[in-house]
Design a protein around this nucleic acid. Structure first.
Lengths: 351, 351
DNA sequence: CTGAAAGCGCTTACAG
DNA sequence: CTGAAAGCGCTTACAG
């Protein structure tokens, strides 16, 4: 391995001068600089990242902390991870993936001095990991928000997203709109913030509409989606449209609805919020989705953290971006009441 | 930040002895050890990972090198990434995600001394990144294989997987089985090895069956899947079953087939090989899949690399695991020829 | 504009 | 069983 000392010897300068050239930290005479650059070139020298980190007490490594994704990876999350990694690299940082589930383990990792900053995913309304992060004094940015809106975060604007979804359905004439959310194993106050925020936006919208809200909570799986379809059909038969905040249950909801002998969007219009365009295309009929701004948010999260590390920033960043409506074939006008009745009669006739 | 020196002072020993206790590298008298452990506890000391790395010239960081996944993440890949990260952590290593596309950039990263070893994904039959890796002298393991089977690798056993898929279809009576693969922008010799290997296994199987092979190559998207459906219908109308080696096109193939007025599995049986169970459940009808052993392989890849780093191993690991058949509803018996004819007549009648 | 030297916080032969 | 000391390869005041 070529060291800075060897470069210095070949260029007849001190290692300090070599360091100044490499980092651009000090003015160096043109001829000297040229000699050094030549030596670097000839020896194919690369600076040792670890030594630099120790000497400068900055590692240029960022940690991406996330709960265990091994079981049910979802497309939105991976888009986020990848774009954050890209964003970091472009600014000269590397992103380490740290799957941590318990706080204890997290504190150990942060205390090791390996990372300059951390990005936290799947933030809960009350999140003990955030307390650990603050205690560790490692700079961080959240993907999502806790109760405390003052911490640096980037997040999906769920209020605007749900409002747009409701507006889209209303423009087709829907009044009876249900919300399907995702069940988590966490206590209510430890739920991901997105569920709470989306639900409250939905409740507001229904209040404005003067209709009773219908919220169904199921697992984020195909089976969960089917369960939601049955629940809606049996317990809330007047429902004409559904907004999903449950990526994993989207396909199951459509399948389940059709298994009940109903059609999408004939009997039930469906919008899946905070997911990917690709998911919409995979399903039959193509799902109308609100595409999550995961690629943008990943980059912005990396930028927000790095700005903080480099002191480029004044106030803690609070970035909100809504999802984008991508129309598919799963939204249509609701049946008129008499039409529904006629259809029911036909069904009763055995056809 | 608490340093080892402070621990040593508090315990009245040298920093060397503290180091021995922390790393278990040398025998230390019980009382001395107890004093040191107490001091560590009281001061809440954590060893500085960067200093350790510089002194020991080992960073315990592993790089996961992958091409740009930002655009089209797929479920199998993310399962792999996550399980590799977990496997590494359990053995005291951290996995860094490095999205690199050009070789030049990769060489720079490897030369920095930040990583002890590398895992390379999406390996091509001839892969210049592998040459770079060898030149950099950084230990590595491949996910996939090049032409050269002697390098350390873990991979899906595509031969066994395709054989099992063909066998499954034959047990239903299928003889006219097509293969749908994925188009890449790479030159043929730079294609991912999986395509070549799956294709050759398929060709062997068809030769054994005494049937002409039909291979259709499309993009790994919904649109690609539709294109495959049309191509099969127009150019190879005798086809009764398809094996997909194209995760992203699976849903589109089924949708496209139904748009042509055909049914799955009535007119066409479908198996999607090397994907996830979840994908199968999302589609209607549920797809019969060959589930990729991504979680196992991720762990095994991490283990193989770490064994190498720690000298635990004799020969370079060559690990092959086949996919697992997960029956869905997309495979059935082919229509008998006369049945097909009758149906065609019915269709011609306008019904 | 350039250099000598201290220091980052550890590990690891080497001595005793 | 324990310690003094060199060294890992850089960065960074401090002098000149």
């Amino acid at each position: 391995m070529v060291t800075m000392r060897e470069v210095a010897e070949r260029a007849n300068v001190s290692i300090a001068t070599v360091s100044f050239v490499i980092n651009g930290t000090k003015r160096v005479a043109p001829q000297t600089r040229a000699r050094i650059e030549a030596a670097i070139e000839e020896l194919d020298y690369r600076r040792n990242v670890v030594a630099r980190a120790l000497a400068s007490s900055r590692t240029r490594i960022l940690a991406l902390l996330h709960p265990d994704l091994e079981i049910r990876p979802n497309a939105t999350v991976i888009q986020f991870v990848m774009s954050a990694a890209h964003g970091a690299r472009e600014r000269g940082y590397d992103l380490v993936l740290w799957p941590v589930n318990d706080d204890e383990q997290m504190s150990h990792l942060l205390a090791g001095g390996l990372v300059d900053g951390a990005l936290l995913m799947e933030v809960q309304i009350r999140d003990s990991r955030v307390d650990r992060l603050i205690a560790s004094r490692v700079p961080f940015a959240l993907i999502g928000r806790t109760e405390d809106d003052d911490l640096p975060f980037v997040d999906i604007d769920f209020t605007a997203t749900i409002d747009e979804a409701v507006g889209h359905l209303r423009s087709y004439g829907h009044q009876h709109i249900a919300l399907v959310t995702q069940r988590t194993k966490a206590a209510p106050e430890n739920e991901p913030g997105r569920i709470m925020r989306a639900e409250s936006a939905y409740l507001h919208a229904m209040a404005a509409l003067g209709r009773p809200p219908v919220v169904v909570t199921v697992e984020g799986t195909s089976a969960g989606g089917r369960e939601a379809a049955r629940t809606l059909h049996e317990r809330f038969p007047g429902t004409t449209a559904v907004i999903l905040l449950n990526e994993g249950a989207s396909a199951g909801l459509v399948k389940g609805t059709r298994e009940l002998g109903l059609t999408v969007p004939g009997d039930l219009s469906v919008i899946s919020a905070s997911t990917t365009r690709e998911l919409g295309e995979m399903i039959e009929p193509s799902l109308t989705v609100m595409a999550a701004p995961a690629p943008e948010l990943g980059r912005l999260a990396a930028d927000a953290l790095i700005d903080q590390l480099e002191g480029v920033q004044d106030a803690p960043p609070h970035i909100l971006i809504p999802c984008t409506l991508v129309p598919g074939e799963s939204v249509g006008s609701p049946r008129l009441p008499d039409e529904t009745a006629k259809r029911a009669t036909r069904n009763a006739d055995g056809r």
